[in-house]
């Protein structure tokens, strides 16, 4: 440390912009001299100071200077020193905190990654369980459809088609298409359900045959909303008014009277005219 600077206290005690490194200062101020050069100069012995001793000497020197100056300092100057010391301390604390935070953040990220991996593992297990359950349910459902198809096929073969509301090719075709539609989306995501896929295919093939026999329905519409014509055909099947056993035509439906809607109608029409 050199001679104390002259001038006002503020200038002399300007806080350091960067922490002072004693080690760097020594390294920069020292000169490398070969042992041979020393020998040429007639120096046979050198005194060696270790690092700790250098630090201790510096500390002592600094403390002595500070004590002397503090003794001579005014109250205002003391306060300024305290304030600057506090600021420096806080800056160091912050630096330390950043280091700690970085470490914590790193640990949190690691923990998060581990947790995510665990969640993914659990999800995969759950998916596998659900897939198994769904396949079981689909299996049962397909079995039920198969039973229905067998029953309906038997009736179709017996010629029990026209004039009955219960069984006709259109209805049968519709049911089968429904079975295909139900089976397909479940079978697809499970990936390896070749059995279900094959079953769906065979049902679809059967659907084509039955559909064609009933009026040439296109099986490609299996998963689409039915066309207006198809629906009309379905609803044109015999119903209550065509001989199905019922008392509906003899029983009055609940009815009521309400206020008319002429006012609303007039308003709507005038609104329409106004916009034209």
């Amino acid at each position: 440390m050199g001679r104390p600077a002259e001038g006002p206290w503020e200038e002399r005690c300007r806080p350091m912009s960067q922490p002072f490194s004693v080690q760097d200062a020594i390294r920069q101020s020292a000169t490398d001299v070969d042992l041979e050069e020393l020998s040429r100069r007639g120096l046979r012995k050198v005194k060696v100071l270790d690092k700790q001793t250098v630090f201790r000497l510096i500390d002592e020197a600094v403390n002595r200077v500070v004590e002397e100056r503090l003794a001579a300092a005014t109250d205002k100057e003391r306060e300024q020193i305290q304030s600057e010391a506090r600021q420096e301390f806080q800056r160091l604390v912050k630096e330390r905190q950043v280091e700690v935070d970085n470490t914590v953040e790193q640990k949190v990220q690691q923990a998060k990654a581990a947790a995510l991996a665990q969640v993914e593992q659990v999800q995969a297990q759950a998916r596998a369980q659900v897939d198994a359950k769904v396949q079981e349910q689909v299996g049962a459902q397909v079995e039920s459809y198969q039973a229905k198809i067998r029953e309906l096929e038997a009736q179709v073969q017996k010629g029990n088609v026209p004039g009955t509301a219960e069984v006709d090719p259109l209805q049968l075709s519709e049911m089968i298409r429904q079975a295909v539609a139900d089976a397909a989306p479940v079978a697809a995501p499970s990936g390896g359900s070749s059995e279900l896929a094959a079953l769906a295919k065979s049902i679809e093939s059967l659907s084509k045959q039955v559909g064609n026999s009933g009026g040439g329905n296109n099986s490609s519409r299996a998963v689409e909303a039915p066309s207006e014509e198809a629906l009309q055909a379905f609803f044109s099947r015999p119903s209550v008014s065509d001989g199905v056993e019922s008392n509906i035509s003899n029983v009055e439906v609940k009815n009521a009277k309400a206020n008319g809607v002429n006012k609303n109608l007039a308003k709507l029409r005038s609104l329409k005219k106004g916009s034209e």
């Binding site: 439906v253 009815n255 009521a256 009277k257 309400a258 206020n259 008319g260 809607v261 002429n262």
Partner: peptide
């Protein structure tokens, strides 16, 4: 369902 008669009354049926 609803329908309006010539006198402007609305007849309602409900099921």
């Amino acid at each position: 369902s609803s329908v309006q008669d010539a006198e402007g009354n609305v007849h309602i049926k409900i099921q």
